[in-house]
């Protein structure tokens, strides 16, 4: 059952991710990316990471993708005219990606413990959000504050960047 769900959602995720790369229309690419993120959230659920799954849907499939679609509509991007395809670029890209995949398969197959199935947790009823929250606010309080400052800097930067005339 778990295995079937894992395969369904990871194949959906990979299929829609391939759609992002292959589709010509930027809006179709963005919608495909939304579906890929939602399927990835389902894969997180098969790993019992409920909090991360919810954050994935809220932040990625919600906020980030709305921003993407908003910008695509704002710039009024049409379907790309198919320009002449540079064969060397495709061969080079394919070689890099293929080399990466084959290296990855080799590393994963030689990784000790890679064929272990999911170990049972001691307390399956534990509150996932509370445990992540404890780790976040007790052990990672300082990085959490830094992230807050980073978001502030990003907000100020975006406001500055989108002014009419850049000084």
């Amino acid at each position: 059952m778990q295995l079937a769900l894992f395969w369904i959602f990871s194949l959906l995720m990979l299929l829609f991710a391939a759609g992002v790369v292959l589709l010509r229309n930027p809006v179709s690419s963005a919608m495909s990316l939304v579906m890929s993120f939602v399927a990835l959230a389902a894969v997180f659920v098969t790993l019992d990471a409920y909090f991360i799954a919810v954050v994935q849907v809220l932040v990625y499939a919600g906020a980030v993708m709305v921003l993407f679609l908003f910008i695509i509509m704002l710039l009024d991007l049409r379907e790309e005219k198919s320009r002449r395809v540079r064969l060397s670029a495709w061969v080079g890209g394919g070689l890099v990606v293929g080399g990466f995949v084959s290296a990855l398969v080799q590393v994963v197959s030689s990784l000790p413990g890679a064929d272990s199935t999911k170990p049972a947790v001691s307390n399956p009823e534990a509150n996932d959000v509370a445990l992540v929250g404890f780790a976040l606010f007790r052990d990672f309080n300082f990085p959490f504050q830094i992230i807050g400052v980073l978001l502030l800097v990003a907000t100020v930067g975006v406001v500055l960047l989108s002014r009419k005339e850049l000084k």
């Binding site: 990871s10 398969v105 994963v108 990784l111 890679a114 064929d115 272990s116 999911k118």
Partner: peptide
């Protein structure tokens, strides 16, 4: 049950 290798390959 999916193993760790499944997840790592899909992620890769």
């Amino acid at each position: 049950m999916p193993t760790l290798a499944h997840y790592l390959i899909v992620s890769g």
